[in-house]
Design a protein around this nucleic acid. Structure first.
Lengths: 121, 121
DNA sequence: CTGTATCCTGTAGGATACTG
DNA sequence: CAGTATCCTACAGGATACAG
């Protein structure tokens, strides 16, 4: 259900700095995770709910990756039942402007829908 | 050769604006294309060379997609042999800051390499 | 030079079931 | 609740060959 478009997101890395970062937000849902965490810390199930049809497996692995890269932090709260809170690290916070920039253009793109005005050279 | 990491890049779109834009720069190499075009118009073979091991097929389809979305323009110059010049449209130009933001964080990410300082809450 | 047509493969990620 | 373990498959994209 909900087949998602795939794409390779790892150009050689040496070419330009893009690759490096795309490795971070290249994964499916990754930008969304950052997005939602930018509004404040959030628990696993909350994120899961936020992101509707994401599978636990994928959410879990994206979170693990991001944690390992120092983009988010994971804190186990010893409540019962146990809950885990994820939050952006300061490094992760730096991604937010980038994400917002992307989102901003996303809007325009959706509006213009492919008008394709020639470049203003 | 040069196996590239794949990832789905199309979260439901309704969730947050990210999806919309990730559809644009989600494809492999796509950010790089924008990146190189941001330095000025460029021909097919130049881009191909810029991006080293990209296959003609992929470059071609990415370019076609981007053109269709109004992000780049394609102009056939009637030289002999014929050459084609690609350039960012004004809309495409708006992607550049986003890309740069991504690139910027890319550097940091590479440097810090996963220090993972806890969030400053 | 600028692509398109095929064929083939790896792998991201969905579904589902199960654990602490 | 917060995951992990399996199994499975669609599809992005590499290689190669060919075309205008």
């Amino acid at each position: 259900m909900l087949r998602m478009r795939k794409s390779t997101v790892r150009p050689p890395e040496g070419l330009c700095p893009i690759g490096t970062c795309m490795q971070v937000l290249g994964g499916a849902w990754t930008p969304n995770i950052i997005w939602y965490l930018s509004e404040g810390p959030r628990r696993f199930s909350e994120l899961k709910a936020d992101m509707a049809p994401i599978s636990a497996k994928v959410l879990s692995s994206r979170l693990k990756e991001l944690e390992q890269k120092g983009v988010i932090s994971r804190q186990v709260l010893d409540t019962s039942p146990p809950s885990v809170e994820y939050a952006l690290t300061s490094l992760g916070g730096e991604l937010v402007p980038a994400i917002r920039a992307i989102a901003k253009v996303g809007y325009r793109l959706k509006q213009e829908g492919g008008t394709g005005r020639p470049a203003p050279r």
